[in-house]
Design a protein around this nucleic acid. Structure first.
Length: 273
DNA sequence: CGAACCTCCTGCGGGC
DNA sequence: TGCCCGCAGGAGGTTC
């Protein structure tokens, strides 16, 4: 479900309610998600949450004593704040009771998400994060970096953009949207794209992600903010889930194809090889 | 090494 | 109404 803007929106939603709170209790409704939730997560009970941060599509709750809880929302995960009086929903797998009296709940129907715990000086050294590429909104992500990262890559640019070793946070929606904004065909071989076009692509990725964050992310089916509000970037989408509809730029019919088992959308007129 | 599949899981909408 | 099919914001693992 969530790509970088949705995870960032979630972070901004929960941080003011979680930072500075003491974890009174961690309740594991079920632990058998993609990576089983370790019972050591209970060691965070009684500790204060010092910070909520994001790296790639991971959220990190940093607690006193170098304890970290690392959360990935997978395809269907979400975090929401609620009152303890609110009835548990099906697929509410983890509940944190906070000293404020509120609860934070991790909800994930498909269980592709991750909730794990580690005691580490630097959570970015955790195996889940250590091999991540640059953040797309950082200055380290620029055209010459991308040119080097894509050299010798025969694969199409779209699945390459979704490779977290190349750049993190760009998922299925924003890969299609960014390539549209940059005027590049998703089927173009990654290594053949010129530096000037990669410059446009980097700018497109950054502006699409930044704009989506401003809009609170994209709600397609079930993504909601921590307070239950949807994101409004869906109305800004130019190609994603618009197959058969007219291009908002030129009127051509938006096409859909499958790459690496994922749907890709593009405009055959605006996007060139 | 890269690239193409496969898998995990539940829910929803469309077609019959 | 109900059942079956395909599809869904991810990503790690396997195979060639």
């Amino acid at each position: 479900m969530p790509e970088l803007p949705e995870v960032e929106t979630t972070k901004r939603g929960i941080a003011p309610h979680v930072e500075g709170q003491i974890i009174r209790e961690v309740i594991l409704q079920r632990h058998d998600i993609r990576i089983p939730i370790p019972s050591s997560i209970l060691e965070t009970e009684g500790r204060k949450v010092l910070a909520v941060t994001r790296r790639a599509k991971y959220l990190i709750l940093t607690h006193e004593g170098d304890h970290h809880v690392i959360i990935h929302l997978g395809m269907s995960g979400s975090l929401r704040l609620c009152s303890p009086a609110e009835a548990l929903r099906k697929h509410d797998h983890v509940i944190w009771s906070l000293s404020s009296g509120k609860q934070l709940r991790f909800h994930d129907p498909r269980r592709f998400g991750i909730v794990t715990h580690a005691e580490l000086l630097d959570p970015l050294t955790h195996a889940l994060l250590a091999n991540s590429g640059p953040e797309p909104l950082d200055e380290t992500f620029h055209a010459s970096y991308l040119k080097a990262a894509l050299q010798n890559l025969q694969r199409p640019i779209k699945p390459a953009l979704m490779d977290n070793a190349i750049v993190v946070g760009v998922g299925n929606i924003y890969a299609s949207e960014s390539l549209f904004q940059a005027g590049i065909r998703p089927t173009s071989r990654a290594y053949r794209i010129s530096l000037p076009r990669l410059t446009r692509l980097v700018s497109a990725i950054q502006s699409v992600l930044a704009h989506s964050i401003e809009q609170g992310g994209t709600t397609l089916r079930d993504f909601l903010h921590a307070d239950g509000q949807p994101g409004y970037f869906r109305q800004e989408l130019f190609v994603y889930e618009r197959a058969g509809e007219p291009c908002r730029n030129c009127g051509s019919t938006i096409r859909k194809l499958t790459q690496a088992q994922r749907s890709t959308y593009f405009c055959p007129t605006c996007q060139k090889h």
